[in-house]
Design a binder for these strands. Structure first.
Lengths: 225, 225, 225, 225
DNA sequence: GATGAATGAGTCTTCATTCAT
DNA sequence: TATGAATGAAGACTCATTCAT
């Protein structure tokens, strides 16, 4: 019955949701199976009907997360066909997501660094891959269409893109300024543009940027008193 | 007395060195106090004479690591006075170090994400700060000397710099290509140069002089925070 | 109705057969109810419609086994009327069976040594009795017919017979030499013959033994009243 | 310090003693580590300083038992130089011991039938070997001295000897008649003698007929029970 | 100061058994 | 009757930390 299948999936989702909550609150090691069971309103043993062990649960949480944001990101990209605009949309989406789901990302590291003896259990730890490929595709298409140069290597561009945004996210989270997402995205795009677009008469609006920041600085000064 | 002090410090160093080895090999959770004690050729109980608990030891390891690389980086920087060359030297040093000491970095996260109940224990987790400041100083001095523009905000530049390099390091480590350090550094510098150096044929604005002075003023205001 | 009864019994047999397979493969404790259910092509819960619990199933397996080999042994015995030949046939059958079904025998011990709190559950653990009685009957009949002496007590003879064969079976199994069954049987018979057959010049002290037993029998009779 | 070594061994002995008690009372599977710890007046964790796991403890119990009885049996044998007398002494000792320590013997089976994945953990499960060798040595020496024939193979003799005694022990235990040890030993020796001794002058009794009839009468009385 | 044996709280996981469907 | 998903009690084992020597 599709009902059965549906119920099963719903249970799985409930477990994942519960687990995510608990893992985010306590981190992998301090999260207890009993807490997850409680949060999912299930018996502890029941968890093991759906997932082999604690590791399998984190993996499911993380994989689920990346699948979900891959879908969302794809939606965000579909709104424009311009390669550069897509890049900006991805940057925006990524940074927003990172700030919001910071600790899920961290959770992913648990998977990298817990090598189990059971071969095959580590399979599917390439959860980021599809997501990361979104970036690659934008770049490659842009290059195919002749909009982008390939002055910089794709791996480097990717590292620059995601690395910068991850650090930016961390900065924003630590300093508790999630409102600066736009600024960071804008600056990242400013950095990338000349290395992607063919003959961009270096960015106009330079002075405007300065003026904008002046305004903000002034506002802050005003607020300080 | 100074002998006593010296002996104490030496013991501490031996513990840190031992702990670093063990932590790097097994990660925080799988590293056992007994292993650390063995590696330090001390009894387990003795560790507790020098460090309150396991957490205190990781902290010491991480703090020590960052202090050490801060020193080394400073040495690397001292070889030139040209701001851009310094930046390149820092990038080179940082990437090399990251590739080499990848897991120490990861170790640092343990500290962020293990909130102990004991207030104050989490103090001093700003181990990266001094190190990160190296970058800031290069940029600021470059700007002060008029070599660098401040088209991009310092926090953003910092995130771009370290974020890109961390991701690049991860890529190099995962793909096992530590020889590509230079390529990555070169590309990063290529990306940064136009946003730092003055003489790049930026837009042919006339009122540049004014803007420039304005910019510097803004920068200082911003730094005042 | 008899159809119903028949179906029920068939189900029980299927369960027993499945359980035997699983128990033999894994031993009692490592055998899982789920495995038995799988092997019987039934749902786990269904097992409990036929047997109260896991213990009841082992018991059924063991009892069934002994009943079955009792039948087979009886067949083997029916081929001759000579007491000694029957004894040999039984020895041969028993050793062959032991080597083949070694672990079923072990399984029987589980029943002895798992005292359940539920009184009465342990009833009927005398599964071996009927089988062991085969030996007794051969001896007794042989004695009745005057073919066998009773120089040795029946219990002792029984222990000698089965004990020797069980150890022999173990030896054969451990050393993986199931072909030596005949040799062992032959030696056992050689040992028994002089103590059973009349015409053998029996050993001295024989009369004393008889007298002693007479005394004991008398004493018991006295005690009975 | 020999004090240290002594203390260690004493602790081990205390654990073994405690474990033996608990295992005998509950059997392997139902015996809990916590019970053993309690019985040894130690913390549960302490057990693991001395023994790797529960299995290691049973093994130690069983091995210790067999070593001990091997020693005791050797003492018992040393009291005579006559091969046959030694055999009788061994039979007597063995049966007495089996009746007394019945369940320790059973415990040994746990080791046979619990194959661990950890290679080498199963090493030393030949605890019986040295003990069993006592029998072999008596037989072989007897043969060397020309006192024993080798009409029957050594392995068969061994199986006969130990098998019979084990079954006899079980019978005695089950029927709760530990006083019949002598009877069983006597009968076993009676069985073995003609197959070992060279020229036993069997008695040329005349009054056989009388004895025979008496025997039958006794047998029937005995059967009446 | 140094030791390392002892501690025991803490947790994942298993699996016989139940019961709603 | 049959099912099999859900249960939850139970237990082996780990390891950071303590403390008597």
């Amino acid at each position: 019955m599709s009902t059965k299948r549906a119920k099963l999936e719903q249970r799985e989702k409930r477990i994942i949701a519960a687990a995510r909550t608990v893992f985010l609150k306590h981190g992998f090691n301090k999260a207890k199976m009993s807490q997850i069971a409680d949060a999912a309103a299930l018996a502890e043993g029941t968890l093991y009907l759906y997932y082999k062990n604690k590791n399998a649960i984190v993996k499911a949480v993380v994989v689920d997360h990346w699948r979900q944001i891959t879908d969302e990101a794809q939606d965000a990209l579909s709104k424009t066909k311009d390669s550069f605009a897509q890049l900006q949309a991805l940057a925006d989406y990524h940074l927003t997501m990172m700030v919001k789901h910071w600790r899920v990302i961290e959770l992913g590291y648990v998977l990298y660094y817990s090598r189990s003896d059971d071969a095959g259990e580590n399979a599917g730890v390439d959860f980021k891959r599809t997501y990361a490929a979104l970036f690659d595709r934008i770049i490659e298409r842009g290059q195919d269409k002749g909009h982008f140069t390939n002055e910089l290597s794709l791996p480097f561009l990717r590292d620059l893109f995601y690395g910068t945004l991850e650090y930016a996210a961390r900065t924003l989270v630590l300093h508790n300024k999630p409102e600066d997402i736009d600024t960071n995205v804008a600056q990242l795009m400013a950095v990338l543009r000349p290395h992607l677009s063919e003959n961009v008469p270096t960015d106009t609006g330079d002075d405007k940027a300065v003026l904008k920041r002046l305004e903000r600085a002034v506002r802050k000064l005003e607020r300080l008193h």
